[in-house]
Structure formats: structure tokens, C-alpha cells
């Protein structure tokens, strides 16, 4: 059933990059640098605005993919890949959605493991692609059997 989810996508959701959320995130990763949190430093920077740390898109709502209900247990985060056209700016709106890019299974030491590749994408209001966030989640056999799909 996970294989059947390949190619499915969610509807776009509007996210606004809020100054307070960026500050809280920068502090939580131990990186409260002026370029992220100080308004004057942002205005004086090459970006003319504060920017968000590269892993900030984890906070974005990218909607739900129909039929893709992952178990809350038995998941391992395998890989995470970001690609940017430019940094994200504090205050801008980003329209985000998700797509299932791939699903495959491999035998390993812990039985048959499933690898689910989900991509989150973000666009500007003009439809320009700003970033992609690819996440590879490893799902063990027990967790897959528990999926009531």
C-alpha cells in the first residue's frame, strides 16, 4: 500500500515565515545569530531582510497526503536533503505541499525495511520554487504490518 502512494501529493498550504518563529527556532538549534533574529542586521545584510536557518522548513505545514497515514512508532529518520534557490526571508509567504517520491523495500539485519521518500516543496506567491526538502523515512516490518490501510 505504501508503493501505491508513489506520486500522490497534498494540496498547497500557505505558510508565513514569522519573525518570532524564526527566533525561537534559531535559539533551539543554538544559533541565535543577528542574520536570523536582529531586524537591523537583517536590513543591512545582502538579503535586505532576516533569513531563516536552512532546516527551518521542518516547521512548515505542507498538508496531508490522502491515504498516507504513517505509524507513530517504528520509524527511523534515515536522510534529509535540502535544496535552495535562495535563503527564505522573514515575513514572506511560502506555499508548501508534499509528494511521495518513492517507496522501496530492502532486506537488512532487522528484517524487511521499507524506505519512504517524501519531498516537501515551497513556492513563492508568484509560483517560483524556493526550496525542496527530501526526507527518507525507514519503516520497520512490525510498524508496516500495524498500518491499517
Amino acid at each position: 500500500m505504501l508503493k501505491e502512494s508513489i506520486g500522490k501529493r497534498s494540496d498547497k498550504v500557505k505558510n508565513t515565515i514569522e519573525r518570532g518563529a524564526v527566533r525561537k527556532f534559531a535559539e533551539a538549534i543554538g544559533d541565535p545569530a543577528p542574520i536570523f533574529i536582529d531586524e537591523q542586521a537583517g536590513a543591512a545584510s545582502r538579503y535586505k531582510q532576516n533569513i531563516a536557518p536552512p532546516t527551518f522548513p521542518v516547521t512548515f505545514d505542507a498538508g496531508k497526503i490522502d491515504g498516507l497515514d504513517l505509524p507513530s512508532k517504528g520509524l527511523i529518520h534515515g536522510e534529509q536533503i535540502y535544496h535552495y534557490e535562495r535563503p527564505l526571508l522573514v515575513g514572506e509567504d511560502v506555499y508548501c505541499w508534499m509528494e511521495v517520491k518513492d517507496y522501496y523495500e530492502k532486506s537488512g539485519n532487522f528484517g524487511e525495511m521499507g524506505f519512504l521518500v517524501v519531498v516537501k516543496k515551497g513556492q513563492s506567491p508568484d509560483g517560483e520554487l524556493l526550496f525542496t526538502e527530501e526526507r527518507i523515512v525507514i519503516i520497520n516490518e512490525a510498524a508496516r504490518k500495524g498500518m491499517a490501510v
Partner: peptide
């Protein structure tokens, strides 16, 4: 982060 005035992080790929 200290270098973000010089350029930006275009690609960042991690294996856990």
C-alpha cells in the same frame, strides 16, 4: 552562519 554574508547554503544533504 558567520559566512552568510558571503553566500548561502544551496544544498544540504545529511545521512543520520
Amino acid at each position: 552562519t558567520p559566512h552568510l554574508e558571503e553566500g548561502f547554503i544551496q544544498h544540504y544533504a545529511i545521512r543520520f
